[in-house]
């Protein structure tokens, strides 16, 4: 028996919004530590890694490890039926070929359940080693979303250059060029609003705007985003989900031909 109950059901709605443009299907791997999902987009350029810890749920039970392959469009459709304040419960029997989502309104007056068929998906996991990155940038997630949106008007790709003075985002295209520089916040009153840079070596990398814009669909999950970069390795864009886990996106850098 698998059962995971979340009073803050809107978290699951937001998680689906954050992954459904990038992935069409994915496997939710559930064990007694929680729920994990790892999947690459169809072109194998980016990867989504989601972790929701068991202790972040209001009730969590997983008697046997279970891998549930799901069509994410279908999951998104079902979660759209949940109210923002609803409690969401996912449950499945051992070896089941369906999963059930139960939504309860705050006053318990409305209870809905939706049963969805599971899929058998080929598991293709990448081993991602713990990495020390040359630069990590923490900044307000809404600011990062704004920068990605604004710069994608200028070109298909964006250069992110991090030095100890700050971080510069640039794009160049037919209409011209755009540069956005963010300085490190001098005095941090509210950490959520600060730009904080930790740098061992300066790094400049180029990434596809389209994917960065997909990643920013996670903005509502966290007030802050962390970008981790080293020369010639994938960028990591991490949104921490309060008290329960994180969603990380990995994106391969563009390479000069």
């Amino acid at each position: 028996m698998f059962e995971a109950r979340l009073l803050r059901g809107s978290i699951l709605k937001k998680v689906l919004e954050a992954i459904k443009d990038l992935l069409t299907q994915a496997t939710f791997d559930c064990d007694d530590s929680g729920i994990q999902l790892q999947a690459m987009d169809n072109s194998h350029v980016s990867l989504v890694s989601l972790q929701l810890r068991a202790d972040g749920f209001d009730k969590y039970r997983c008697d046997r490890n279970i891998s549930m392959g799901m069509n994410l469009n279908s999951v998104a459709k079902i979660l759209k039926c949940a109210g923002d304040k609803d409690t969401v419960t996912m449950k499945a029997q051992d070896n089941a070929d369906t999963v059930t989502f139960v939504f309860e309104s705050p006053n318990q007056e409305k209870v809905s359940d939706y049963e969805m068929k599971l899929m058998n998906l080929d598991l293709e996991h990448l081993g991602i080693p713990e990495t020390e990155y040359s630069c990590t940038i923490r900044m307000p997630s809404a600011e990062f979303a704004r920068i990605c949106r604004d710069l994608s008007q200028f070109g298909d790709s964006m250069v992110i250059a991090c030095t100890k003075e700050g971080v510069k985002f640039s794009a160049t295209g037919e209409i011209g060029s755009a540069n956005i520089k963010l300085a490190q916040t001098a005095s941090v009153d509210k950490e959520e609003e600060a730009v904080i840079i930790e740098m061992d070596e300066p790094v400049t990398l180029t990434f596809a705007c389209q994917y960065l814009n997909y990643f920013t669909k996670a903005t509502s999950l966290s007030p802050q985003v962390q970008l981790s970069m080293s020369a010639d390795v994938p960028l990591v864009v991490e949104y921490r989900i309060q008290d329960i886990g994180h969603i990380r996106y990995y994106l391969a850098p563009k390479i000069e031909d």
């Binding site: 690459m40 072109s43 194998h44 350029v45 980016s46 990867l47 293709e124 996991h125 990448l126 081993g127 991602i128 080693p129 790709s157 180029t206 596809a208 390795v233 994938p234 990995y250 391969a252 850098p253 563009k254 390479i255 000069e256 031909d257």
Partner: peptide
């Protein structure tokens, strides 16, 4: 001209 490398070029299959 820039090209995009696939991710499995950086990480091994688990």
């Amino acid at each position: 001209q820039v090209a995009q490398n696939p991710l499995p070029q950086y990480y091994t299959w688990a």
